[in-house]
Simulated scan of single mutants.
Amino acid sequence: MRKSFKIFSGIIIVVAIALTCAWPWIKMDFAGNAHYTGQDKREYDFYTPDILKNMPRISPRYSFDYTNITGPATHVHAMKFYDTDTTREVENYLASLGYRQVKCDVDAVCWRSTDPEEAIDVDILKGEKTVIVQVVYHFT
């Protein structure tokens, strides 16, 4: 009886430690949205797609957003550059990766690659002097 109690207690402790260590990633996996910067290493590594990680930094002040739209199974990853309204470097970067500009329904410049699930929108908020680059993944 005493030996089985020790084994059971050991298993409980191991499971508790594993859950404690894994909880931040579990929480991020089920999050509906997130706002973070490049200094938030865990969120940056987890949410940010490679295309945004390698995006030219056209302003020293920028942040990231993530939104999980559950209805049509869509993930939106956004990078906001503040205090700028130039997009030339971003457009050159996307073109160098093989993306091409396409006509879109929103008031932005839309880019597509051969991946039908991915869309990139580049928009300038004139009143705020902010550039927003959105990477949208449609999983339907």
Rank of each mutant, 00 (worst) to 15 (best):
A108P: 14
F8I: 14
M28F: 03
W111F: 09
A119E: 15
V136H: 02
K41Q: 13
R2H: 11
R57H: 09
E117G: 08
V136R: 07
D85R: 07
H75Q: 15
W23H: 12
I132R: 04
K53A: 01
A78C: 07
T48M: 00
I124Q: 03
S63P: 14
S96A: 09
V131R: 01
G38N: 08
C21R: 12
T37V: 06
D85V: 06
R42Y: 05
V14Q: 06
H77N: 12
M1Q: 15
S4I: 15
R88S: 12
I26E: 08
T140L: 10
I69K: 07
G38W: 00
N33G: 11
D65A: 05
S4T: 15
I132F: 01
H75K: 13
L94C: 05
T86A: 04
T86Y: 04
D65Y: 03
V136A: 04
E91V: 06
S59Y: 03
G32E: 09
N92A: 08
K3Y: 11
I132L: 06
T70M: 09
T74F: 00
K129D: 13
F8V: 13
S96E: 11
I120F: 01
L52T: 05
N68S: 10
V133K: 00
I11C: 10
V90D: 01
I124H: 02
V15Q: 07
F81M: 07
T86S: 08
V14W: 02
V76K: 00
L52G: 01
A31K: 05
W23S: 12
A18M: 11
V131L: 02
N33L: 01
C21G: 10
L97V: 13
W25L: 12
N54L: 07
E91R: 06
T67R: 07
V136Q: 11
I17S: 03
R112Q: 14
V76W: 00
A18D: 12
I69R: 11
A108Q: 12
V106M: 13
D40H: 03
R42C: 09
T48C: 01
T37H: 04
A18N: 13
R88M: 10
A31V: 08
Q101C: 11
H77T: 06
E128N: 13
I124G: 03
S59D: 09
Q39D: 14
M1R: 13
L125E: 15
I26P: 11
K126M: 09
A73S: 14
I124M: 03
N33E: 12
T114K: 09
M79H: 03
A31W: 01
S63A: 10
R88C: 08
R61N: 15
S96K: 07
S9P: 11
C110R: 05
V135R: 00
P56Y: 00
T37N: 09
G32T: 13
I51C: 02
P24E: 02
G98I: 08
V131M: 02
M28W: 02
Y62D: 04
E89C: 05
S59N: 06
M55R: 04
C21D: 15
K80E: 13
S113T: 15
V122C: 02
T84P: 07
V14G: 04
L125P: 13
P24F: 00
I51V: 12
K6L: 10
S113N: 14
Y62M: 06
C104G: 15
V109S: 08
N33I: 03
G98E: 06
T37S: 11
L97H: 08
G98Q: 07
I120C: 02
V136S: 09
I58S: 04
T84L: 02
T114P: 12
S113K: 05
G32Q: 08
D50L: 08
E43S: 10
